[in-house]
């Protein structure tokens, strides 16, 4: 990796990628909030933001400025250190996870191969899962540190929910791992040339997407922040930039979930038909995640929220057995074809 371009060239590329990821993540999160408001407005026959800039396009910018200047309130009996730590974990972990997502195929320039993900490890998929699994701490500690019962209940619920649905996510993606024989995100995409895994693993795709909604605290699984029962859930007591970090993390998590779904099931940066390959891979990747993100927003404003016991039952008694079944069937078919 270091060979062809020298040490400082390598450092430069890593820093450049990190800066691009930070800018992309911040912009994506800001405009996801805009998209969510616009789409929800359309679904509910309203106009949505339309005052700041043309079509309200500068609204996210105004929101960020507002968040910066808002009064920073904090409850009295809080755990000072944890109260500050929790939102930082949320933001950091979400950005870390994004570092291992390949937005384009490896590009070879002379003797140097440029990988489009920041951290290229051969267990990229596990890396992302590991990082997102640390996100539980931010939600739970945030709920605990605020010393408020709404926050604590929200935090407790979310910790249980995230751990339960992590299992469902793991089982759903196992089918793809068996098919591709690799945990390397780039290799998984390359194996899908010609036939995307969604056609071979349709069940796994739906299981992953549903479990992903739960992992991202999206409706119909947004129990950690059920506003009708919990105020706002784990971030009830947060304001100003601390709240903004939670907000940012939630939208980045959505992007990550859609990115993983795109990479594993929808062929990542690959075009749908070979003759369309003149369009750069990054564009295809962005188009695909945009479609999935739109679906997520669409679902949010269409479906009501689950009841808590139903949520747990659904995760453990429906998603998990279906995921296991999918693994067994995939394994048997692959073994039979090999024989």
């Amino acid at each position: 990796m270091v060979g062809a371009i020298g040490f400082w060239g390598w450092v430069g590329i890593v820093v450049l990628k990190a800066v691009i990821i930070l800018i992309f993540v911040a912009t994506a999160a800001a405009y996801m909030s805009y998209a969510e408001r616009k789409v929800s407005a359309r679904i509910q026959l309203r106009h949505g933001p339309n005052r700041v800039g043309p079509l309200g396009l500068l609204q996210p910018l105004a929101d960020v400025v507002k968040l910066f200047f808002k009064e920073n309130t904090a409850p009295k009996g809080r755990e000072r250190f944890l109260f500050l730590l929790a939102p930082s974990i949320a933001g950091a972990v979400a950005i870390f996870a994004f570092a291992a997502i390949p937005v384009n195929g490896p590009t070879t320039i002379g003797s140097f191969t440029l990988h489009w993900d920041l951290i290229h490890v051969n267990v990229g998929l596990l890396f992302i899962l590991a990082m997102t699994s640390l996100g539980v701490y931010s939600i739970f500690l945030g709920g605990y540190a605020a010393n408020s019962k709404y926050s604590l209940l929200g935090g407790l619920r979310s910790a249980a929910q995230l751990i339960s649905y992590e299992m469902a996510v793991a089982f759903a993606i196992m089918g793809v791992i068996i098919l591709s024989g690799s945990l390397d995100m780039e290799q998984i995409v390359t194996k899908q040339t010609g036939l995307w895994f969604i056609f071979l693993q349709p069940l796994a795709f739906f299981l992953y997407f549903i479990a992903g909604l739960a992992e991202g605290n999206r409706l119909p699984f947004d129990l950690p922040e059920a506003e009708s029962e919990l105020g706002a859930g784990y971030h009830t007591e947060y304001s100003s930039m601390k709240f903004a970090f939670y907000f940012l993390a939630e939208y980045i998590n959505m992007v990550i979930i859609c990115s993983i779904a795109t990479t594993l099931f929808l062929g990542g940066w690959l075009p749908p038909f070979a003759f369309l390959s003149f369009i750069p891979g990054v564009i295809w990747y962005l188009v695909k995640i945009s479609l999935l993100l739109f679906t997520m927003i669409w679902i949010r404003f269409t479906l009501p929220r689950f009841r808590y016991d139903r949520l747990m039952n659904f995760g453990w008694k429906v998603l998990l057995p279906l995921g296991l079944m999918n693994i067994v069937v995939t394994g048997v078919v692959i073994a039979l074809r090999a024989a």
């Binding site: 267990v123 990082m131 699994s133 751990i163």
Partner: peptide, 25 residues
């Protein structure tokens, strides 16, 4: 790399979450 991922997923992401959970409760 595999040990890295497993260590974080299993210990930091699952076992310790339960510990923290119980202690906070």
């Amino acid at each position: 790399q595999f040990l890295f991922a497993v260590q974080i997923i299993v210990y930091a992401g699952a076992v310790m979450v339960l510990f923290v959970f119980i202690i906070a409760l």
